[in-house]
Design a protein around this nucleic acid. Structure first.
Lengths: 295, 295
DNA sequence: TGCAACCCATACGTTTTCGGTATGCCAATG
DNA sequence: CATTGGCATACCGAAAACGTATGGGTTGCA
C-alpha cells in the first residue's frame, strides 16, 4: 500500500478522469492508468467503473476514497507538524525553575513566553536543588532557571543575570535600622543555612563570602528551601543570606538589607541538555533575559 | 511523502533501534537506515537523536509519529473497507419496491436481509411505475422489486416468482358470494384501471387477459397506485383486477376472489443495472426468493 | 457512412529508486 | 587494547515508475 498510489487514486476519483488527473499531477496519462490498475489489483476489486466518458467510483472505491484522502491529509499534516515543532512554532516547552526565582521572574517571564512562542504548550515545574540535574537529564523539563548554574558535562548553561546577596531579618531586628549592614556586624549571629554545597551550590557562595570576610556565623538550622528559611527568620531563629530576588514574595515582617563591602553576587542561568537542539531553547533564553532585565 | 517511509519510521520509533526495526520489517539494517535519513531530509529536521544505545525520538519525531501511525492505520483500513464492500460484507444497499409488493414481501424480506448481509446499511424506497427505471439507472436505488419485470437493455432481471390475478370487490358485491368468479361474470362491469401500459406494464397484462376472454369492462377510473384503486373499489366505483399479493394490507370491506379459467399470472422480479456488479445483488436475490416462497 | 476527436489501455525503453552485501566509524565494555 | 554493538556509507543488481508511441473503443459531426 503506497501513498503515491493513494494520491493518484484520489486525483482520479476527484476529476473522474485519468487524463484530467494526469494533468493535475503533472504526469502523462498512461503511467497513471497503470498505477490505478495496480491499485485495483492490490485491493482485489475494481474501484472505478470505466464508462465512455471518464471514470466513476464504485461503492468499494467510495469506501476507499474517504479513508485515503484522510490518510493523505494526515501524512502531510504530520510532516508539517514535525517541521513546525522543529522550527519552534509548535510543540511543548517544559520549564523548571527554582523557587527563589519564581516570584521575581515568572510574572514577567510567562507573558513574554506566550508572546514569543504562541502555539507552544508551556508547562512549569518547581525544581529542588537536589533534583534539578536529574529533571533535565531525563528530559522531564526542557530548560531550567537556576541560581547558580548547574555544572555538569551534559548540561549547557547560559548566564542571564546575577543577583547580589542580601541579609534577611525580622523587622524588629536591631540591624534593620541600618541602611546597609557591614559584614562585621554578622559576626557570631545565628545563620539559617540552606543545604550544604553538594546539594545546593548557592550555599557554598554564602560560605565563601563569610570565609573571605572572616566571619563566623553559627548555623542555627539547615533548611531545604528559601521559603522555609524565611519562616525561620520570621520566627526569630536567625538571619539568612539570600539572593536579592527572594524579597519578592517574602512574608511581611521580614526586611532585607544589602551587605556593605560584599560585592558578591550569584548567577542566574538557563540550563538545558546539551543535546536538546530545540529552537525553543534560544527563544526561551531571550525571554528570560528580558524578564531578568527588569528585576 | 511515501507511506513506506512512514511505516519504516514508525517501526524504528517503536523499537527505538534501526537494527530491531529492520528485523521486524524483514529487511537489512543499512537500507532502513538510509530510508530514515531520507525521511529526515524530506522533513528538513532530525526525527531521532542518535545515541550510543539506539535511537530516540526528538520532539519533531513525536509530532510526526502520532500522525504517521494514524495515517498508516487509515490506509490499511481503507483497503480493508474497500475489500469488504466489494465482498458484500459491508456497504449500502438501496432497495426500491413497488407498493403492491410492500405488504406481502417486506415483512419477510427485511429480516432475511439483515441476517444475510449484516454490516450493510439498508435503505428502502417506494418506486412508482413511472420512475422505477430512472431510479435504477441513476443508481439512487441498487435493486428494485418489480411486478412485472422492467424491460430495458441496461437493466438485468431475475424472476423470483409470480402472482395470479384476483378480483377485488366490495364485500357486499353479489360476486363475493362465489368461491371463484368465472370470467364471463365480469362482462360489462366497471373496472378501476391502473395507468396505461407505457407507464405500467402490469395493466397491459390485465388488458390482455380481458381481450383473450373477449370481456369488455368499461373503465370507471384510472388511478396511479394499487392502494388508490382499493379506495375506489371500497367506494363502490367498480372492480379491480390485481395481483394476489395486494390482498395483504388491503382495507377491510374488500374481498378478493380468484378468476376461474384465468391461469394468467404476473412475474415478480428483481431488477438492477447491468453494470452494478455488487455481490450484494445476488445475496439480495436469494433473500427475495425466500421471501416470495412463503407468500 | 465515414472521419475526427476523445479517452482509456498496452507495449517498450529509459531512468529513478530501492534493497542487499560489504565495510567503516564510534562508543562502551571487559 | 581488543571486542562488541549499533548506525552510516559505498557499491551493485533488481524492481518499479515514468514517458513516448500506439492500439481500440465510443461519441459526434459531416
Amino acid at each position: 500500500m503506497d501513498l503515491r498510489r493513494l494520491r493518484y487514486f484520489v486525483a482520479v476519483a476527484e476529476t473522474r478522469s485519468v487524463g484530467k488527473a494526469a494533468e493535475r499531477l503533472r504526469m502523462a496519462q498512461p503511467p497513471l492508468s497503470v498505477q490505478i490498475r495496480k491499485l485495483e489489483a492490490e485491493i482485489g476489486a475494481p474501484l472505478f467503473r470505466r464508462g465512455t466518458r471518464g471514470m466513476d467510483l464504485t461503492e468499494a472505491g467510495q469506501a476507499l476514497l474517504a479513508r485515503a484522502s484522510e490518510a493523505l491529509a494526515l501524512a502531510v499534516d504530520g510532516a508539517e507538524a514535525a517541521r513546525a515543532v522543529a522550527a519552534g512554532k509548535r510543540g511543548r516547552l517544559s520549564v523548571g525553575y527554582m523557587f527563589v526565582l519564581a516570584n521575581a521572574m515568572l510574572p514577567r517571564l510567562i507573558p513574554e513566553l506566550r508572546r514569543s512562542v504562541p502555539g507552544v504548550d508551556l508547562d512549569f515545574a518547581e525544581l529542588s536543588a537536589s533534583t534539578r540535574e536529574a529533571r533535565l537529564l531525563d528530559r522531564s523539563v526542557t530548560v531550567a532557571l537556576c541560581m547558580p548554574a548547574i555544572n555538569h558535562p551534559e548540561i549547557q548553561v547560559a548566564r542571564i543575570g546575577a543577583q547580589p546577596f542580601m541579609l534577611a531579618m525580622p523587622i524588629r531586628s536591631p540591624l534593620a535600622r541600618l541602611g546597609a549592614v557591614p559584614m562585621a556586624r554578622l559576626q557570631g549571629r545565628p545563620l539559617i543555612a540552606l543545604p550544604p554545597p553538594e546539594q545546593d551550590p548557592a550555599s557554598s557562595a554564602v560560605a565563601a563570602l563569610l570565609r573571605r570576610h572572616q566571619i563566623v556565623m553559627p548555623i542555627a538550622s539547615r533548611v531545604e528551601t528559601v521559603h522555609s528559611a524565611m519562616s525561620l527568620v520570621l520566627a526569630g531563629e536567625g538571619l539568612a543570606i539570600v539572593p536579592a530576588c527572594a524579597q519578592l514574595g517574602a512574608p511581611r515582617g521580614i526586611v532585607f538589607r544589602p551587605l556593605r563591602d560584599a560585592a558578591d553576587s550569584i548567577d542566574i542561568a538557563v540550563c538545558w541538555r546539551r543535546d536538546s537542539q530545540s529552537p525553543l531553547i534560544s527563544r526561551f533564553i531571550k525571554c528570560a533575559e528580558k524578564a531578568v532585565a527588569r528585576l
